[in-house]
């Protein structure tokens, strides 16, 4: 049996008197898409940021398994090593594209940044790679020199995905990637994400308050409330036969299909 790609153990994060996440543990298997659902304030975004190394946890461990069998404990990683991992092996898709994009440089430069940080030195090659990625996320490559601020919300989100996937990461963290978009735009984006996940065999941890999104993308689901996991299991199981009262409420209130 293969090892999990990511193992989170007993992770706790506090802000002053409030505890955002308390004793969270889960594994993510290679090629798996794990959904974390819960209402706003349930601690799911904080959890994602701690796991991705964007915030430091107060307690607990986050272990990542490299291809060569080595296991890396996040808290023992030096800052440069963590940064390198965040821009090569990993990717983070923010809910708000402006957090994940450089709004003051062109789309091409946004996609090219990770390449240049990884020693690409040929302008023409960087550019053609950027064009390829624009097409992969269904953006007309003639828009390569335009600023992201001239893009629609859905296009900005797709650009953010291209900027992140260009370095061929293994593990992608997504924080409400379809939040704030119209329903029709959401559907197209979800479809795109699903195809990219399949095409590149990505492992994904996706945080969402939208159970429809979770059902479409994830194979396994964690339900959070007040900083704790209250239920977990295969997505279909959790959605069809929720065990905890809270999950039942969540499912009945949101999933009117």
């Amino acid at each position: 049996m293969t090892a999990p790609l990511l193992s989170v153990g007993n992770l706790t994060k506090r802000f002053g008197a409030t505890t955002a996440c308390s004793g969270i543990s889960f594994d993510l298997w290679p090629g798996e898409v794990l959904g974390i659902v819960g209402e706003s304030g349930s601690g799911k975004t904080t959890l994602l940021q701690c796991v991705a190394g964007l915030q430091s946890a107060d307690e607990g461990s986050v272990a990542y398994h490299l291809d060569d069998g080595h296991r890396i404990e996040l808290s023992t990683l030096s800052e440069p090593a963590l940064r390198r991992m965040q821009r090569t092996e990993w990717a983070f898709i923010h809910q708000h594209p402006h957090l994940g994009l450089r709004m003051n440089v062109s789309a091409g430069a946004n996609i090219g940044e990770r390449l240049m940080a990884n020693q690409w030195q040929h302008y023409g090659n960087i550019r053609s790679e950027a064009e390829k990625w624009l097409q992969a996320v269904e953006i007309d490559s003639s828009r390569i020199d335009d600023l992201p601020s001239t893009y629609s919300g859905g296009m900005q989100q797709r650009l953010q995905i291209a900027r992140n996937l260009v370095s061929k990461p293994k593990l992608v963290f997504m924080d409400e990637p379809t939040g704030g978009l119209d329903v029709s735009v959401q559907a197209r984006l979800l479809d795109l994400i699903r195809n990219l996940v399949r095409k590149f065999g990505l492992s994904v941890v996706i945080v969402t308050h939208d159970l429809a999104v979770a059902r479409l993308l994830s194979s396994r689901l964690i339900v959070m409330r007040n900083g704790e996991i209250i239920e977990e299991g295969l997505t279909d199981q959790v959605l069809e036969d929720p065990q905890s009262a809270y999950s039942q409420l969540l499912v009945s209130s949101i999933l009117q299909v």
Partner: peptide
């Protein structure tokens, strides 16, 4: 300071890339 310490100079080339593209 961190960018220098970690030789994290991708951003410098972003500027040059942007010059050429524009």
């Amino acid at each position: 300071r961190k960018m220098h310490a970690y030789e994290d100079y991708g951003l410098m080339h972003v500027k040059l890339y942007e010059d050429i593209s524009q």
